[in-house]
Amino acid sequence: MLQIDEISKTFNIGTVNEKTALHHLSLALQDGDFATIVGSNGAGKSTLFNAIAGSFYVDEGSIILDGKDITFVKEHVRSHSIGRLFQDPLMGTAPHMTIEENLSVAYLRANTGRHAYFSRISKKEKEYFREQLELLGMGLENRMSNPVGLLSGGQRQTLTLLMATIVTPRLLLLDEHTAALDPATAAKVLALTKKIVEERSITCLMVTHNMNQALELGNRTLMMDRGSIVLDISGQERENMTVEDLLGEFEKRAGSSLDNDRILLSTKEGV
C-alpha cells in the first residue's frame, strides 16, 4: 500500500551543518498495517514523516502510495489521502476560526470539484459534524461556534484527530501526537486514535517514545537510527519481545548508551 524505496535526504549540503537525515531508507506497509516507530532524537522519524507527507522532496529514491508514484507530488495534493497529527496540539487547527469552520476546511478533502469553491457549509454537513463531535465525548458538539483557540490542548488535539480522519485517509501519520498532553488526556486521545484506526482499518504510522506503546499498539514495531530503519518486527517475534529486549536492541543498534531520558522515563508507565 505504501512502498518507500531507498529514499535519502541530506540537509544543508555543502555546509558545516550538512546532515544526512534519511539514508537509503526502505519501508513497505500493507493495507491496514499499524506500525509504531521508535528511535532516539535525530534518528530521522519526523524527517521520514515529512518525506511521506511531502513537506520536501527526497534527494533519491521513490515513494509509492496505492500504486501511484507520489515522489514529486505536492504536499497539499498528497493530503487528500494522507492525514497527519503533530506533537504540538496547536499546529493542526486554526485558532481564530470556529470548530465548525475548522471541520469544514478539513472536510474540503471530500469534494475535490472546483465548483465547490463558492458553496457554503450545508445544514446536512453541520449535522454530520455535530454527530462526529458527539462521538469524541468531550462536549465539543455544543461549542461548534466557539473559536478553536479557546479549547485546551487535549481538546484541540482530539479535534485535529477528527479533522485528519473526517474524510478517511489512506494513510495516517501520528508524530508523537500525545506527547504534549497530560497523562489522562493522552490516554483518552490514544484510545480514540485506536478506536478510529481499528474501526476503519486505516493504515497508520505512529512515532512514540514509549516502549510499552511501541509494542502494544498496532501490529508492527520499527526502530530508526541515523536515517534508516534498523529493526522491523511483527507477528510472533514482536509478541515475544519485551520492553527490556527492545531497549537492549535500541542500545545495541544505536551503538551507544541511551541518551534519551524520555524513553527511559516512560518505559514503566502505561501511557
Partner: peptide
C-alpha cells in the same frame, strides 16, 4: 469569507500547517 474558498483563505492566514493538511494549496 463564508464560502469554502473564503474559509480556506482564512485558514491560510491562521494556520499554514492545517491548510496543507487539508488539501488546500496555500
Amino acid at each position: 469569507l463564508g464560502t469554502r474558498l473564503g474559509l480556506s483563505i482564512r485558514a491560510t492566514g491562521d494556520s499554514p500547517a492545517m491548510v496543507k493538511a487539508s488539501s488546500i494549496n496555500p
